[in-house]
C-alpha cells in the first residue's frame, strides 16, 4: 500500500515536470480554465432565464440554486476526468499503438495501477476548486430560498456518493481502455465520452424515459452528479443511495474483469 502511494507520488512529480515543459499550456490552461468553466454554467442559466421570461417555474422540480449544486458536482468530476483520466487514457492508447505497453507489463507492479496513474494535468486543480465553489454557492442559494442546511447525514451521504461517482468514472474509463486493446485507433473514444459527459451538468429530471435509464445505468451520469447533489440538498432517499453504491461496486468488478480479459488477450495474441 505504502509502495503504491510512493508510486503515485513519483507519477505526480513527473506530470508536474512534464506540465512545466510546455510553459504556454501551463499558464494558458490555468487561466483559460477559469473562464471556460464559468462559461459552462451558461446553458443552465439560459434555460432558467428563458423559462423565467416565459413565466414558467423551476425546471423539472429543480430550483436554479439546486441545479447549480448539480453543476458544481459536475465541474468537480469534470476536473477529475480532464485532469487525471483523459491524460492517462491518451498515454495508454499511445502505449498500445506503439507497443510500448510491453514496458509497463514488465514492471513489478499492478499494470492497471500503473496505467491509471500514468499522467495527470496538475492545473486542473483550479477546476476542482471552481466546482466546489459552485456547490457552496448553490447550497447558499438553496438555504437562502428557505431550504434546510445539510446535516451530518447529508454531508456523509454526499461524500459517499462523490466517492462512488469518482469510482464510476474510473471504471468507465478502464472499460474504454479495454476497448483500445481491440480497436487500436480509438483516440476519439475519449472525445465521445467527454462530450457525453457534458450532459451530466443537467439535473436528472431533465432526462425522461429511455434517456433517463440510459444515463442512470449504462452511462451513469445521473448517479455521478445528480445523486450527490440531491444527497446534499436532502432530497435523496436511502434506496437510491443503495442503488448508487451497488451499481458502483458492480461496475468496478466489471472493469477489473474486462481489464484482466483484455490483458490476457493482449499477451496471448499480439506479437
Amino acid at each position: 500500500m505504502r509502495r503504491y502511494l510512493r508510486l503515485l507520488r513519483a507519477s505526480l512529480r513527473l506530470s508536474l515536470l512534464l506540465a512545466m515543459q510546455y510553459r504556454w499550456d501551463f499558464i494558458g490552461h490555468g487561466l483559460m480554465q477559469l473562464v471556460w468553466t464559468s462559461l459552462g454554467v451558461l446553458p443552465l442559466w439560459i434555460a432558467y432565464q428563458a423559462r423565467a421570461a416565459a413565466g414558467l417555474s423551476a425546471l423539472g422540480g429543480y430550483s436554479f440554486p439546486q441545479a447549480l449544486t448539480v453543476f458544481g458536482f459536475f465541474t468537480l468530476l469534470k476536473a477529475l476526468l480532464d485532469g487525471a483520466i483523459n491524460p492517462s487514457l491518451t498515454a495508454v492508447v499511445e502505449h498500445i499503438r506503439t507497443g510500448t505497453l510491453d514496458f509497463i507489463l514488465l514492471k513489478p507492479a499492478d499494470a492497471q495501477f500503473l496505467v491509471s496513474t500514468a499522467r495527470q494535468e496538475p492545473w486542473r486543480i483550479i477546476d476542482a476548486a471552481t466546482g466546489i465553489g459552485f456547490v457552496v454557492f448553490g447550497m447558499a442559494g438553496h438555504i437562502h430560498q428557505g431550504g434546510a442546511p445539510p446535516g451530518l447525514g447529508a454531508l456523509l451521504g454526499a461524500g459517499l456518493l462523490l466517492l462512488c461517482a469518482m469510482l464510476l468514472l474510473y471504471s468507465i474509463w478502464i472499460l474504454v481502455i479495454c476497448a483500445a486493446f481491440y480497436v487500436v485507433r480509438i483516440d476519439n473514444l475519449s472525445f465521445l465520452f467527454t462530450s457525453l459527459f457534458d450532459f451530466a451538468r443537467w439535473p436528472r429530471s431533465v432526462f425522461r424515459g429511455a434517456l433517463h435509464v440510459l444515463f442512470t445505468f449504462v452511462v451513469p451520469l445521473v448517479l455521478m452528479t445528480s445523486y450527490p447533489a440531491e444527497a446534499l440538498l436532502g432530497l435523496l432517499r436511502p434506496p437510491q443511495l443503495l442503488l448508487a453504491v451497488v451499481w458502483t461496486g458492480l461496475l468496478l468488478c466489471l472493469c477489473r474483469l474486462a481489464w484482466r480479459r483484455s490483458l490476457a488477450a493482449y499477451t496471448s495474441a499480439s506479437s
Binding site: A47, A54, L192
Partner: peptide, 21 residues
Amino acid sequence: TTTLPLVSMVLWRAVAAEGPI
C-alpha cells in the same frame, strides 16, 4: 460524437415542455 444534438434535443424539449420559450 456528432449525434449529441439528439440529446440536446431531448433536453430542450424538457425545458420547453410546458410552453414555448
